[in-house]
Write a protein that binds this DNA or RNA. Structure first.
Ligand SMILES: [Zn+2]
Length: 276
DNA sequence: CTCGGCGCCTGCACGC
DNA sequence: TGCGTGCAGGCGCCGA
């Protein structure tokens, strides 16, 4: 799923209905998405108030009033859905955890068909230590073209693999890694230490641009992703290469190529993104 | 330490 | 219609 733009969209959608709400009761349907035993997890959250909603990379971060954090990694198919008090419509098909809220505010549902997602409860200290293992926020001030160039030079891995490494930059996944490489006109298979300063500058701009525009479109729904209100994202229509094997390149009309790199699809235009 | 391969789990699209 | 295959946003573990 869910990469940075999807996590950001979900955080924005949860802020209004969830901030200040307290947990009345937690119902665990699938304990395999938790880092604790179901009863322990439920007990630790009972009565807790959600004080702030944010994200780190592609992870949702729900800060509790006692400064603990509930960190949600959505895996491939995770959703965080707000269900209003008189929630109409059909019940969710694959709920994994319900957080029923006090005061008739409805519930927050963690929904996950494949259950690759994980919910972790961190103390303030544990959260800081975990956050420190992640790279800079690509839309934040620490992520500069110079820092990116330095990072690229320090590794011999293919660019697409480098971008998926959350310790390098936090929040880029396979869709936006492929899109950013296309916008920057770099072969996603190129070893990062072969890229020059100009390529690093183009990549820096491309990453920021594609993530910002995807946030504006409320993310990309391939199949499972939904906003906190259950809506689909609109960025899929704007994808240039991801999922478009065989279609003409939007720049030069050459057919887009799909290859497999580290067991995952990579999409590129062989003319606009020539092999190094 | 770095890197790539693989399993985790379910549903869907496609070809025969 | 039914069945087999391939594919999907991520990530942690393992061995080279
Ligand atoms: Zn092209």
């Amino acid at each position: 799923m869910p990469e940075l733009p999807e996590a950001e969209t979900i955080a924005r959608g949860l802020r209004e209905p969830l901030t200040g709400a307290s947990v009345d009761r937690v119902a665990v349907i699938h304990a395999d998405v938790l880092d604790l035993e179901a009863e322990d997890f439920a007990g630790r959250l009972r009565g807790s108030r959600f004080e702030a909603i944010g994200r780190r990379g592609k992870n949702l971060v729900l800060r509790l009033a006692d400064s603990r954090r509930l960190v949600v990694n959505l895996g491939m198919s995770g959703r965080l859905l707000m269900r209003g008090p008189g929630a109409g419509g059909p019940p969710p098909t694959h709920p994994a955890v319900y957080f029923h809220l006090q005061g008739g505010l409805g519930s927050l549902v963690y929904h996950d068909v494949r259950r690759f997602g994980r919910l972790s409860l961190h103390s303030a200290k544990e959260y800081a230590a975990w956050s420190a293992t992640l790279g800079p926020e690509p839309l934040g001030p620490e992520f500069t073209a110079v820092a990116l160039e330095r990072g690229l030079r320090s590794s011999a891995t293919p660019l697409r693999s480098w971008l998926l490494d959350q310790r390098r930059v936090a929040g880029v996944g396979n869709i936006y890694a492929n899109e950013a490489a296309f916008l920057a006109r770099i072969d996603p298979r190129a070893r990062t230490n072969s890229l020059d300063a100009d390529a690093a500058r183009r990549l820096h701009r491309a990453i920021r641009r594609v993530l910002s525009e995807a946030i504006d479109a409320r993310g990309t729904t391939l199949r499972d992703y939904r906003t906190a209100q259950g809506w689909e994202g609109e960025y899929g229509a704007k994808l240039q290469v991801y999922g478009r094997a065989g279609e003409p390149c939007p720049r030069c009309a050459e057919p887009i190529v799909r290859e497999v790199l580290s067991n995952r699809s990579v999409f590129f235009c062989p003319r606009c993104q020539p092999a190094p």
